[in-house]
Amino acid sequence: MKLDILMVGVGGQGTVLSSNIVCDVALANGFDVKKSEIHGMAQRGGSVVTHIRVDEEVFSPTIPAKSADIVVSFERMEFLRYADYYGDNTTLILNTQVIAPPSVGDGSAEYTDDKVEEVKKQFSKVYATDAISKAIELGNPKIAGMIILGILAKAVHFKKEAWEQAIKDRVPPKTIDLNMKAFDLGYNI
């Protein structure tokens, strides 16, 4: 079972926890897994990307062109930058939160809403949700990533219990309940 997941977002959105949990779940299910990301300069509000690859044996740490099974975009337009990676059978999981790039922030460029709608049609399946608003309703915007992870968990074939165990192992003990609530919310969307 090959599973290539590309997670994209904006530096500071905290995609690290989500991607670590995916790795734990894959390993617990007896698969080889590799996760590659870029740290450092790009983290300061720049565009960030994480490659997660699961298979019987994984070689390249990065996903080849057109072969991502799932693209998870933590920001509304960020997936547009990674068009090389989606093929005919790619699923998009989209957090519709907008984070304005600097040129949009200062009014010198337009946010590309039209393009988002147009390119979304290329995906075989799209799960779009306003995770930030849902997270705020649950009491903490920081758990938006866990809602997205719940959606991702539903879209892949590992057992729900494996996800729950990995979350328990990775989040601070005091926040387990809140994280589980957020995960369930995403899982049941």
Binding site: A42, P101, A109
Partner: peptide, 16 residues
């Protein structure tokens, strides 16, 4: 060659 869509508003790293 890696292709990138230059029509998108660029998102460079920035001072916080």
């Amino acid at each position: 060659e890696v292709e990138s869509d230059n029509s998108l508003p660029f998102r460079p790293p920035n001072m916080c």
